[in-house]
Design a binder for these strands. Structure first.
Length: 599
RNA sequence: GCCCCGGUAGCUCAGCUGGAUAGAGCAAUCGCCUCCUAAGCGAUAGGUCGCAGGUUCGAAUCCUGCCCGGGGCACCA
């Protein structure tokens, strides 16, 4: 009925203690009146929105009105009468249609400052995850080119979610699934080959379906630098007798497949594979470097090719086949995903014998569960939503509980420069890369902007706003609050003063100003916010909270002077603002945003 | 046609596991630097929560239908 917090270094948060009080009051009330409840129900306690309603409120009496057949206010009064006392609860009031409002004691509210100073960067972390093993897969962009701005959102979101879950006590494993097997890799290979041949003086048209980006030239040049003429073949022989490309009235898909086949013939498998591996390695290396520079790190880069070569895909398909979940039609093999909620059945092995991307995805997700992760989170772009049903279907066919797999679909980021919308086209090769974005607006602004909205929400990413050093920019607003605290301490030292934290905590009850009370309340909310954000997998809550916290600080800063004559009050105020600084730092850290000492 | 996501203040959004007068930032108007960084603060103004029904003591929040906007519906990845 009630989720009790696990024993650990972190004390249970106030909200949970209140739930327990209500629980006890309810039991006492029921036994006093010999009443029973047929259904259990969760007791909710929420932060009161209005200060007049206390610190926390519960609607439990209203929800019990029907099962107990009594007016909610009667029940609320009964609960209040049977409520055990609690050292941190000043008083409990009945209000409105039957709300129970809790007023926390001033001492309990003040205690957060001491706790923050004691726990430091640990403040806000909890054990609610209970060490549960979670694998989070994110970005997983195909290694066919540099990451673009769309991938950036998945990267920032996945990284923040990973940090958040870790802070909530989960054992998090971060993974990037590398699609380094399959046709795309061959298209990449011939794209590089054609550029290489061009550079060596061969006259050859670039395939319509090839990858046109500048990075292909770069890879070709590296290939020349390392291997010279090793891959030099005759362009004329390479294309002789091939079907027409799309710009000559043919089909670009047919053309490029033929070109791939011819390249393998002409070069031989060994040399062909060298180019392929060089190209893939170059691109993965670039992606890895890009993400690392963005502050995004993985525990593992999981290669699709390794899965195929280890026979994992064949084994998975064989297992499905043995249970009758696969059938053959038109020469291809189909998985009966429609038996498990998908719209239609899906091909796992094409008529030409090639396995599909979906087939290796089945094996990959099976592998995640077989490695012992009790929960898997896939962060994908919204354009992948069609995969959810089929991947779930495959896991269900293996007898796994599909509730253990969660998809988080991240909507696209639309770039603006002021009011002007930037066109993004991946086809033309003129897309804006993540690297370009980072260089233009900086990592901090990029990380923050990417996660400040709910992932389901389209993101308008204004480059001008992200770069602006003004109050319009939420990143600077928060970072500035942090820097300002540092600045106060610097000013203090300049005046030959010292902060005595012990004296500050001893005089913490001098913080009676409304601005100080508001700030204390914000600090008290942080652990609850982390639990909520982690529980709902919503890093944007952190961003929203930090803005509020920074606002609370800036308001306070403008209303009061911290470096006052009264030493007790001065140290109490310094204790409060350094605690605020700590919480800002903790929160920004989860988002992967720096907390600068000065700006 | 089917599936997913969105539609809340002029703009960008939060609130959505039902609760007490719907919030923030920007933009607008008016104020605040002999004083710890004005990358800041204060005040005013601004809303049929897409529309219509339904469930409920109570709906921005849940259900149904409809209207807009985005995305997805391959023997592609």
């Amino acid at each position: 009925m009630v989720a009790h917090s696990l024993p650990g270094q972190h004390p249970p948060i106030m909200k949970e203690q209140l739930v327990e009080l209500l629980e006890q009051a309810l039991q006492a009330l029921l036994s006093a009146e010999s009443a029973t409840l047929t259904d259990t129900l969760d007791i909710h306690v929420e932060r009161a929105r209005d200060g007049a309603h206390g610190d926390y409120a519960s609607n439990i009496a209203m929800r019990l009105a029907k099962p107990l057949s009594r007016p909610p206010r009667d029940i609320a009064q009964g609960l209040i009468d049977h409520m055990p006392t609690h050292p941190h609860v000043e008083r409990v009031e009945l209000a409105g249609p039957g709300f129970i409002n809790f007023f926390v004691t001033q001492d309990a509210a003040n205690a957060v400052v001491e706790r923050i100073h004691r726990e430091g960067h640990e403040f806000g972390r909890s054990q609610i995850g209970g060490g549960e093993r979670v694998i989070i897969e994110f970005v997983s962009a195909n290694p066919t080119g540099p990451l673009h701005v769309g991938h950036g959102r998945g990267a920032a979101f996945g990284a923040a979610l990973g940090n958040l879950l870790e802070a909530a006590g989960y054992d998090v494993h971060r993974e990037y699934y590398v699609n380094d097997a399959g046709r795309q890799m061959h298209i990449l290979t011939v794209s590089v080959l054609v550029r290489y041949l061009e550079h060596r003086g061969e006259n050859i048209a670039f395939p319509v379906n090839g990858y046109r980006g500048d990075y292909i030239h770069d890879i070709a040049r590296d290939l020349e630098a390392q291997a010279g003429e090793r891959y030099r073949i005759s362009a004329a022989e390479l294309i002789e007798g091939l079907p027409a490309d799309a710009n000559a009235g043919g089909d670009k898909e047919v053309y490029i497949d033929a070109l791939i086949a011819r390249a393998r013939e002409q070069l031989g498998e060994a040399r062909y594979k060298e180019i392929l591996q060089a190209a893939v390695a170059a691109i993965i290396g670039d992606i890895e470097e890009d993400l690392a520079a963005f502050g995004v790190r993985y525990d593992r880069w999981f290669s699709e090719r390794s899965l195929v070569e280890a026979g994992a895909v064949d084994r998975a398909l064989t297992r499905l086949e043995s249970t009758g979940a696969i059938y053959e039609q038109d020469g291809a093999k189909w998985f009966r995903s429609s038996d498990y909620g998908d719209d239609k059945d899906r091909v796992v092995r094409r008529a030409d014998g090639q396995i599909t991307y979906f087939a290796s995805d089945i094996a990959y997700h099976l592998d995640k569960f077989e490695r012992g992760f009790s929960r898997a989170i896939d962060v994908f772009g919204a354009d992948h939503h069609g995969y959810m049903a089929r991947v779930r279907a495959s896991l269900e066919a293996f007898g796994h509980d599909t509730d253990r797999l969660e998809f988080r679909l991240v909507q696209f980021a639309i770039l603006y420069r002021g009011h002007e919308r930037l066109a993004m086209s991946t086809r033309s090769g003129e897309f804006v890369t993540l690297r370009e974005l980072r260089e233009e607006v900086g990592n901090d602004a990029a990380r923050f902007f990417y996660v400040m909205r709910r992932p389901e929400q389209h993101l308008d990413f204004d480059l001008e706003l992200a770069k602006s050093r003004s109050n319009e920019n939420p990143v600077y607003y928060i970072q500035y609050a942090h820097a300002r605290v540092c600045s106060v301490l610097a000013q203090m030292a300049e005046r030959g003063l010292e902060h005595d934290p012990t004296r500050g905590l001893a005089h913490i009850d001098k913080l009676t100003e409304p601005h100080e009370q508001a700030l204390l309340q914000l600090l008290n909310r942080y652990p609850e916010m982390i639990e909520s954000a982690a529980g709902n997998h919503e890093p944007h809550q952190i961003a929203q909270y930090l803005r509020e916290l920074a606002a609370g600080f800036h308001t306070y800063y403008n209303a009061h002077t911290f470096l006052v004559e009264d030493e007790g009050l001065r140290d109490a105020r310094l204790a409060l603002i350094t605690a605020t600084r700590q919480v800002i730092r903790n929160g920004l850290d989860l988002l992967g945003v720096a907390a600068p000492e000065s700006m």
